[in-house]
């Protein structure tokens, strides 16, 4: 059986494309950074949900009238949600004033969600998330090394890092807001990415046991076939999960839009990285280790 698609033959392209994406992401992170939400800054965020849409400028004007200079106002959900962020810590009295002002000025009932944060907590959470990803990676490397081999383990973890970096890069490039929920999305993807990679690696291992390839051609053919054998599964699984994430994005309401978008990105990236990064890193590495004994005559 021959593979219809030569995945391994195109590995240079995959590495190039992925490299460019990551480079762009890192540049964007260095230049414009992330659009950090209130969770990582100190101050107050007030989400005002209106019955009828109001323009951003109209909302801004109301806040200016109340004495807030150049208020940071964004609108969402067809202009029905007004988000006001400030580095000040507003006490409840002020929040109530704003509620009354909006309710009076626009003649409607308004609903308010307020969040006040000291950045210590947000920073801690981000730090904990990074530590968790690193420790989880170690755990995964250990497990996969025990059950498979360390080359699979390292390749799977590199793909995982790629996925996490990819989502973060896109959020930096598009300047989408990064909050605690975003971290949860990245962590979900980390779990999903490894899961996806292991399924392909499991098939490669099974075929390796049977075929015992000797040459580069045999090895690449084996990897190509393994990818192809699991391709329908990869596509179908991504499809079902994408259904779920897309439904959340479209119907799940304003507050989890970014979360669902991050998941959608990560699902595609996870499927891509399993095939085009993890498997390709492994095949190159494996081949080098297979050549080594031959290059030393007499051993």
């Amino acid at each position: 059986m021959n593979s219809k698609i030569d995945f391994v033959g195109n590995r240079k392209w995959f590495f190039l494309i992925s490299g460019v994406i990551i480079l762009a992401g890192v540049l964007s992170l260095l230049v414009q950074g992330l659009n950090l939400g209130i969770d990582f800054k100190s101050g107050t965020r007030i989400d005002i949900t209106m019955d009828k849409p109001v323009g951003q400028q109209a909302a801004q004007a109301q806040l200016e009238k109340m004495g807030y200079a150049n208020p940071d106002v964004t609108t969402g959900g067809n202009g029905q949600i007004v988000v006001f962020q400030t580095t000040e810590t507003l006490d409840s009295g002020k929040v109530e004033q704003i509620r009354d002002q909006f309710s009076k000025a626009f003649h409607q009932k308004v609903q308010v969600e307020e969040q006040k944060v000291d950045p210590v907590v947000g920073r801690e959470l981000a730090r904990n998330a990074i530590i968790s990803v690193l420790v989880a990676s170690l755990g995964i490397i250990l497990y996969v090394t025990l059950r498979f081999e360390y080359r699979f383990a390292v390749a799977a973890v590199l793909a995982l890092f790629y996925d996490a970096l990819f989502i973060i890069s896109v959020f930096s490039l598009l300047q989408l807001e990064v909050n605690l929920v975003f971290i949860a999305a990245v962590l979900t993807i980390v779990g999903y990415s490894v899961n996806d990679t292991i399924v392909i690696f499991d098939r490669i291992r099974e075929n390796m046991d049977r075929e015992k390839p000797k040459t580069w051609e045999e090895l690449t053919a084996l990897v190509n076939i393994s990818i192809q054998q699991t391709l329908v599964r990869s596509i179908n699984t991504v499809l079902t999960v994408v259904f779920a994430a897309a439904a959340l994005y479209l119907f799940g309401g304003e507050s989890i839009k970014n979360f669902s978008f991050a998941l959608l990105l990560g699902l595609f990236s996870g499927a891509y990285s399993s095939i085009c990064i993890a498997s390709q890193i492994w095949v190159g590495w494996k081949w080098r280790s297979m050549q080594r004994p031959k290059s030393v005559p007499g051993s």
Partner: peptide, 16 residues
């Protein structure tokens, strides 16, 4: 195997 790795990741998340 695929699910155990997810559990490892989740358990670490829980701990930290």
């Amino acid at each position: 195997d695929a699910n155990i790795t997810t559990i490892i990741a989740a358990a670490v998340l829980f701990y930290f």
